[in-house]
């Protein structure tokens, strides 16, 4: 079952960057890729739960702001130590200047 929820405006995120979005007490990270595609993942790193939105985005990679754990934010795949667990991703769609996340 899909549950599309508005996360933010498309202009709220700079190109190749990320912002934090809290919905119903859950933290998400919403990304804008260098090609202006949008993606969403859980907001916290799977290693020690730091807020990913304070980390650096380079191409398709988000890097945890604390321990440099890296994930491909388009797939959630962890890219090596210290990450032991992949990151959950969410379907995203853009409509009328807004970014929506399917919270499932």
């Amino acid at each position: 079952m899909s549950n599309w929820t508005r996360a933010c405006g498309t202009d709220d995120i700079d190109n190749e960057d990320v912002i934090p979005v809290a919905i119903d007490g859950h933290d998400y990270a919403v990304y804008r890729s260098p090609d202006d595609d949008y993606f969403a993942t859980d907001g916290h790193c799977t290693h020690e739960a730091f807020l990913l939105a304070e980390g650096l985005v380079m191409d398709n990679i988000i890097e945890c702001p604390k321990h440099n754990g890296r994930f491909d934010y388009t797939t959630g795949e962890g890219k090596g130590a210290p990450i032991c667990e992949d990151l959950r991703t969410y379907p995203v769609k853009v409509e009328g200047g807004s970014v929506y996340i399917d919270l499932g």
Binding site: F50, L51, E54, G55, L56, E63, P65, K66, N68
Partner: peptide, 11 residues
């Protein structure tokens, strides 16, 4: 506060 300077320090 927290990791607020992390991005810039990483750069």
């Amino acid at each position: 506060t927290g990791t607020s300077t992390a991005k810039d320090i990483r750069v």
